[in-house]
């Protein structure tokens, strides 16, 4: 059995988890076994509908609604053992990063994080993963009996079919050593790693007061917002928007870079984007070498026009 762990974000299953679900179902097919999902906590949607992604069963452990890496890892590992799972799939998300390594130790199961493709099972179990901050890929063999893979967001397309999953809900408890003192939400932020389109801007925007046009462009595209490191360092934009080698690594379908020179450390975090558009007034900006489409021009003139053209066309 292939067990897929689904992140439960305040009762909702996120897109990256649905990708993991489809991925896990495809791995199960490859291995000639079935795929089952595990979700911890209460969920607001109908879990049986997850059958459309190719899982036969959804195990729900109810009653536990505060994430705790230690407690959750035990629940996941126990479910894997109980179901005799040969593969456990996570999304390489915030909670996946906290959980998968712990489950790996509990099950003594080799873990590959940041997977970008289905495993090659022709000779063992070899997983392709992103390394060197997106500048290369490594093919990593898992040698243990149980395998754990955590899938990069946006690396595998969730496929919808027909089907309904059996939902088995059982009560669970954990004891946590971590007390959650408070939670604060960042306003209006679309999760960057999940965004299919990202609009990003750099020092070329001159100052934080000029971000209005960037936000408008992002709005018409329903895009996430990102920035270069100096922009976050100068506190023009919040840290969580900083993309690159030392910030967030992303792989959207479309990355629009405005007034960003394209330094190697910046490219490292964004070069897995499927399509890159660069808008820069300097024709020699290194970013053009990594771009698919480009406009050489002043962002202050080009961006409002681009926003208007997109609005007109939609």
């Amino acid at each position: 059995m292939v067990l897929i762990y689904l992140d439960n974000i305040n009762g909702a299953i996120k897109k990256s988890s649905l990708e993991a679900l489809s991925y896990g179902a495809a791995v199960a097919k490859q291995l000639g076994t079935d795929a089952q999902a595990l979700v911890i906590g209460d969920v607001s949607s109908d879990l049986s509908a997850l059958g459309q992604y190719g899982v036969s069963k959804v195990h729900q452990l109810s009653g536990v609604n505060e994430f705790d890496a230690q407690g959750f890892a035990r629940l996941v590992a126990d479910k894997a053992t109980e179901g005799n799972a040969s593969v456990v799939v996570f999304s390489h998300s915030l909670s996946g990063k906290a959980l998968a390594p712990r489950v790996s130790v509990r099950l003594k199961a080799g873990l590959v994080t940041g997977a970008v493709a289905l495993p090659d099972t022709s000779n063992g179990f070899v997983v392709k993963k992103s390394v060197f901050s997106g500048k290369a890929f490594a093919n990593v063999r898992i040698n243990s009996a149980i395998k754990i893979v955590s899938l990069n967001p946006n690396a595998f397309t969730a496929v919808l079919g027909a089907g309904s999953a059996e939902v088995v809900t059982t009560a669970a408890t954990i004891s946590s050593n971590v007390k959650i003192a408070s939670v604060s939400k960042s306003s209006g932020a679309r999760t960057l790693t999940e965004s299919e389109i990202v609009v990003s801007a750099g020092r070329g925007m001159k100052g934080p007061e000029n971000w209005g046009m960037i936000e408008e462009l992002a709005d018409v595209l329903n895009a996430g917002l990102a920035c270069s490191r100096p922009v976050a360092d100068a506190h023009w934009r919040p840290h969580h928007e900083h993309v690159g080698q030392t910030g967030v690594a992303i792989a959207p379908n479309l990355y629009i870079a405005v007034g960003i020179s394209g330094a190697i450390q910046h490219l490292a975090g964004v070069n897995r984007s499927k399509t890159i558009v660069v808008i820069n007034k300097d024709p020699e900006a290194p970013f053009f070498k990594a771009a698919d489409y480009g406009i050489v021009g002043d962002a202050f003139e080009v961006i409002p026009k681009l926003t208007a053209a997109l609005k007109a066309g939609s």
């Binding site: 199961a109 873990l111 490594a138 093919n139 990593v140």
Partner: peptide, 15 residues
């Protein structure tokens, strides 16, 4: 016992 081992590396396709 090592649970994983790197088999090979690849570069992404050129733009």
């Amino acid at each position: 016992d090592a649970l994983t081992s790197t088999v090979s590396f690849e570069m992404p396709p050129a733009k």
